[in-house]
Nucleic acid binder design. Structure first.
Lengths: 193, 193
DNA sequence: TAGATTCCTTGATTTTAATCAATGCCTTAG
DNA sequence: CTAAGGCATTGATTAAAATCAAGGAATCTA
């Protein structure tokens, strides 16, 4: 149940077996069925969730009532409403499962205690956030600087698994497009039929 | 010269005078004239820069030759091509001064040694990146979920100083719009004339 | 101070993506 | 097994932003 989590952790910051055991006591496993919520807008975000298995998405609803996906999280990724988690403010994002999923949850209390007592945890978190920041910066840069065909190619190149596993209309939402437009872009990019 | 930097640091992580002195030995001040480069695309990003005074921007050039601004940095902000800085890969962003500026530079070597020897530096960096990540997430969410008028209002509400100090065509670039479109949006938002 | 440059705005036109509408294909639930 | 819903595609039309073009401050500078 914790394989991927500790694999990812050890890749970034190697742990002794004792450290690993200690950290494990702070973690809570959780299963989520497809379409179940992990977090709803307005609620308090109580966890950082590491995805051991399955797929989640985080999104907001725009004024037209359309779901706008801000993030996907497949195996090995972490997902949360970090602002809400850290500040205790109500969440702005909703997070739910695209597929049945197995998660590892870190509560606020666990997070704070781990930061205080396990220096390597702070390093892990720092590296994790740094990676997320760089990924986000890239995504933003591609949005403001590339034509949408290039953005789609980029997405395929960077996250082939997402494009394969996730329905196209969600990809469209993630790219800020309508499904119709994405379909036409695909027609052009993926070998004009 | 180091006032703002240590003020910002102490707000996040209070330092003893000795710690502060130690950290100071790792920092390099640098002045930049308007239009001067701090970093050019393709070069190695050797520093994280903290802005004590003035204003910088980071950008890429798109295939039409247009500058696409990815970030502004005014007093109290930090700017860098983090990916290049951390990995040693060539920079994808160019950074230059919008106004004459005074910077505090942290070199790669300094960064690494500070991480090893000053635990509070790691905490500072973690909090700094976390803040940057959350800000970026918000910006991205507003891009994919809000109409551009709302995005502009948001920008004014969040960074009034930027909108005041920076030429409008740079704001347009930052928002991924043409200056003409932004001008028309402004006409609508800022009291239709 | 004259000239140049940068910057913002406005108008007309073109291009691009959104919207509206319909079809066909799967998958799934009863 | 059949109906229903979800999903992707395609076409026609509308709406929005980009582009092209020009003009008028304001600022810098030689």
């Amino acid at each position: 149940m914790y394989e991927l989590f500790f694999q990812s952790f050890n890749e970034k910051v190697p742990l002794s077996p004792e450290e690993q055991e200690k950290i494990k006591t702070y973690l809570t496993p959780k299963k989520l069925r497809k379409k179940q919520y992990l977090l709803q807008e307005g609620d308090l975000c109580k966890y950082i969730a590491f995805v051991e298995k399955g797929a989640l998405k985080s999104y907001v609803i725009d004024e037209a009532g359309t779901e706008r996906i801000t993030q996907f999280a497949l195996e090995g990724w972490t997902i949360s409403d970090l602002y809400s988690f850290l500040t205790g403010e109500p969440a702005t994002y909703t997070i739910d499962a695209i597929e049945d999923a197995e998660l590892i949850l870190i509560s606020k209390a666990a997070h704070e205690e781990l930061l205080q007592t396990v220096p390597k945890y702070e390093t892990y978190i720092r590296l994790q956030i740094t990676g997320a920041y760089i990924a986000l910066q890239r995504r933003l840069t591609s949005i403001i600087s590339l034509p949408i065909e290039e953005r789609y190619k980029n997405l395929i190149a960077t996250y082939p698994t997402i494009v394969q596993r996730v329905p196209q209309h969600m990809i469209a939402s993630y790219m800020g497009l309508t499904p119709e437009t994405l379909s036409r872009v695909r027609g052009r990019v993926t070998g004009r039929k």
